[in-house]
Structures are given as structure tokens and as C-alpha cells.
Design a protein around this nucleic acid. Structure first.
Lengths: 167, 167
DNA sequence: ATTGATGCAAACTGTTTGCACAGCT
DNA sequence: AGCTGTGCAAACAGTTTGCATCAAT
């Protein structure tokens, strides 16, 4: 559909990839880490640390909050989970296979829903601006806060559970 | 220089404007509120709540942390101060007369310095994307995290105190 | 004189950390 | 056995709030 859409990195065996990542850093593959990873990879939406704790506990009830917080940096470092900083109260995360490389977020002010939309030009923009400042771009993010016209009318902006919109 | 640069709203008498804002909401003009506003308007850089407390106390040492936090929403509501959410640990603010309407931020990962740069296309982008989702854009922000090549070489990326760069 | 605004300190939220114990390898 | 990873609870940072007092209108 979109001829220049950024490609999402599709990983064959993500869990194995995670284990390899741990091994490569000399870290152990524990039940908790596996449960946390499995949970994170399975959640279809953007999630918070607390959400992740809930889901991970459903898989292994020995998982503690501390371990979730200690694992999150590992997950993001491995590239399998990405941090989506909306600037709101707490941080959000999203499994990488649900997001493409350069995407912007549209945050619904009414229901807090986060839509991921393609924004391939972001890379170019970051480079252009950084060149002028003699800097090297590391990452960029583009976020639009918006109101759902559906919500304003009907008082609800549920979109049938569709979370990752490719507008 | 820039033919389509967004214009910064220049206010003749900002302190008076703030007083009028307070009056219009039936709020009292207190010494503390005035001190906090004066401090905020005078700070040349992006500032945190704590920075503002320091500066406000220099003008009126009776100002408390609680009042600063209680005043910040007033300042942003009045439009005289704007919130610049960098997603980092704490929130940053900036006097509106130091920022233009559509600007992006380049955040130096090395010294945490925030550069404001023109990004007039943001408005267009927000509208375009929101149309597709049947939403109404409220605000948009574009942020680039970057490394300062100067810092990497010399271990310092002070740019002569220049904070608001118009790249 | 009213009634809103303030300072203080305690509460709160999200996250991090010290410590003793559990469990990989 | 040795040492990493864990759960627990306490610590932490930034922000919010309840309450008695203070001061703008």
C-alpha cells in the first residue's frame, strides 16, 4: 500500500533471540526473565511496567515488581521491546514487532489511546536539523495530542480494539 | 531569514497580562504569584519546577515549593509559559516569548541542553494525520535526541550560553 | 470580615536499591 | 561451591494534598 513504508523487523524466533541476547551478555536465562519477555511480546497494546507485571505474573506468579523494572532495560537493549515515551505520567512500552522503524504517535486526549502511524520523513528531519547544530541524531519522536471527534459526539472512542493503526 | 518562520507572540506588558488572567478567573494577585511569574518570565533557559522555586525565592523568600507547583498550571493556562515535555525525568518549562509556535527540540544527550528549532511543518503534519484518524489535533511535538560532536571531541559542548538556537 | 491562598509536612506515585536468600551452572 | 538473580521492603524523586494560618479583596 505505502510504497516507502518503513519495514518492521520481523523476527523468526523472538524468544530464542532474547535468550541469545542474554547469553551474549553473560546473563542467565531465568524463569522470571522468560515470563516477563513472553508477556511483553504477547501484549498487543502499549503497556506500562505495571501492566507488564500483571501479564508476567499470569505466566509465572513468582515474578516481582522489582524484577520487571530490572528486566525492562534488558528488553529495550535487546531491541525486542521499545520504549514509547509519551511524556505522560508513566512510561509506555511496545513490542518491537508491532512498531515500525519510524513511526509517530497520536495520543487521544479522551481515552489515552496511542496510535502508531508511519512517519518515514522523521529520519531525514533529524539528520537535517542535527547537521545544522553539528550533532549526530540518536533518535527522534513525533507526537500529536488530539481529540477524538467520535468521543466528543458519542462519549466513546473505542475503535474495536484496533491499536496499531497504519494511517 | 526564514520566510515562513512561525512568529513568537510578543506581549507588551506580560506581568499585566498575567494579572488580568488571574482577575478573569476570579483569582487573587498575591506577592508569591507575582514573584513566581516574574521569575519564570526572566529565566532565559528551559527550567524545572525546582529551578523556578530558586529564582522565585530570590525575589520573594516566602515562596514555597507547594505554591510553585500550584502556580505552574496557572502559568501554562495563561499561555505565558509553556510546558516542554522532553520525556526525561522531570518536566521543563519555558517562557512563551522565548519560543515560537511550532518548534522542535533537539536534546543533547551529553549535556542535556535543549535547543529549540523551527519546525513549521509540524502543524500541517498534525492535521494530515489526524484527518485520517478522524481526530482533531491539539498539539504536536517533535524531539530529536542527539550527541554533540563537539562534546565527543573536546569533552564539552557549551555553546557560549546560547540556548535558543534558530536552526 | 470573608474567603481564597499559603507554608508546612505528610502522603502519594512510579521507580530504584540494599540485603539476605534462592537457584543456575 | 560460587555467584548471579530474586523478592521483599525500604528508599527515593518529583509532585500533590490536608490543614491551620495568613492576607487580598
Amino acid at each position: 500500500m505505502n510504497p516507502v513504508a518503513p519495514t518492521s523487523v520481523e523476527i523468526e524466533n523472538p524468544r530464542e533471540t532474547f535468550k541469545e541476547f542474554l547469553a551474549s551478555k553473560g546473563l542467565r536465562v531465568t524463569n522470571q526473565r522468560t515470563a516477563i519477555f513472553d508477556a511483553a511480546f504477547k501484549i498487543e497494546d502499549h503497556f506500562t511496567a505495571e501492566d507488564l507485571l500483571d501479564h508476567a505474573r499470569a505466566l509465572d506468579d513468582s515474578v516481582s515488581r522489582a524484577t520487571v523494572y530490572r528486566s525492562l532495560p534488558l528488553l529495550t537493549e535487546s531491541g525486542l521491546i521499545r520504549e514509547v515515551d509519551v511524556g505522560h505520567d508513566n512510561k509506555y512500552y511496545l513490542a518491537s514487532h508491532r512498531a515500525k522503524t519510524f513511526q509517530a504517535q497520536v495520543i487521544c486526549e479522551d481515552c489515552s489511546h496511542i496510535f502508531e502511524v508511519d512517519a518515514p520523513f522523521m529520519e531525514w528531519y533529524g539528520k537535517t536539523v542535527c547537521d545544522k547544530l553539528d550533532m549526530t541524531p540518536e533518535s527522534q519522536r513525533l507526537q500529536v495530542s488530539a481529540h477524538c471527534s467520535n468521543f466528543t459526539k458519542t462519549g466513546s472512542c473505542e475503535r474495536g480494539g484496533k491499536t496499531v493503526a497504519t494511517a
